[in-house]
Amino acid sequence: MEEKLNLTSEWDKTFPKSQNVDHRKITFHTRYGLTLAADMYTPKTYEGKLAAIAISGPFGAVKEQASGLYAQTLAERGFLTIAFDPSYTGESSGFPRNVASPDINTEDFLAAVDFLSVQENVDPEKIGILGICGFGGMALNAAALDTRIKATITSTMYDMTRVNANGYFDEEDNEESRYEKRKAMSLQRTLDYKNNDYAHAGALPDEAPEQAPQYLIDYIDYYRTKRGYHPRSQGNGKGWNVTGCQSFMNMPILQYSNEIRSAVLMIHGEKAHSVYFTKDAYANMIKDNKYTENKELFIIPGAVHTDLYDQMDIIPFDTITDFYQTYLK
Rank of each mutant, 00 (worst) to 15 (best):
M1E: 10
E3S: 13
L5G: 06
L7C: 03
L7D: 03
W11T: 01
W11F: 05
T14S: 00
F15R: 00
V21M: 12
D22I: 14
H23D: 04
T27P: 04
H29D: 11
R31C: 04
R31N: 13
L36I: 09
L36A: 03
A37C: 09
D39A: 00
T42E: 12
P43D: 06
Y46I: 15
G48R: 03
L50G: 05
G57Q: 01
P58Y: 03
F59I: 09
G60I: 02
A61S: 11
V62R: 00
K63D: 00
E64H: 00
A66M: 00
L69M: 05
A71C: 09
A71K: 01
Q72R: 06
L74Q: 07
E76V: 03
R77W: 02
I82Y: 02
A83L: 10
A83Y: 08
P86K: 10
P86I: 09
T89C: 09
S92A: 07
S92C: 10
S93K: 08
S93W: 07
F95C: 07
S101E: 12
P102D: 11
D103R: 15
E107Q: 12
D108N: 14
F109I: 13
A111S: 15
E120I: 08
E120L: 11
G128Y: 05
I129S: 05
I129V: 15
G134I: 05
L140K: 02
L140P: 02
A142L: 14
A143N: 04
L145A: 04
D146V: 10
T147D: 15
R148H: 06
I149D: 07
I153D: 06
T154Q: 04
T156D: 08
D159P: 05
M160D: 02
T161S: 13
T161N: 10
R162C: 10
N166S: 12
N166R: 11
N166W: 14
Y168V: 15
F169D: 10
E172F: 13
E175T: 12
R178P: 06
Y179W: 13
K181F: 14
R182G: 13
Q188N: 13
L191Y: 14
D197M: 15
D197V: 06
A203Y: 01
P205K: 14
D206M: 07
L216R: 05
I217W: 00
I217G: 01
D218Q: 03
Y219E: 07
Y223S: 00
T225V: 01
S233Q: 04
S233Y: 02
S233G: 11
G237S: 11
G237Y: 04
N241V: 11
G244Y: 11
M251W: 15
P252N: 11
I253T: 09
Y256K: 15
A272W: 01
H273I: 15
F277T: 02
F277W: 09
T278H: 02
K279Q: 12
K279R: 09
A283T: 07
N284P: 00
N284L: 04
M285S: 04
K290T: 11
Y291I: 12
Y291P: 06
Y291S: 11
K295F: 03
K295N: 03
F298E: 08
I299R: 00
I300F: 05
V304E: 08
L308T: 07
Q311E: 10
D313E: 13
I314D: 04
I315G: 00
T319W: 01
T321Q: 14
T321A: 12
K329T: 14
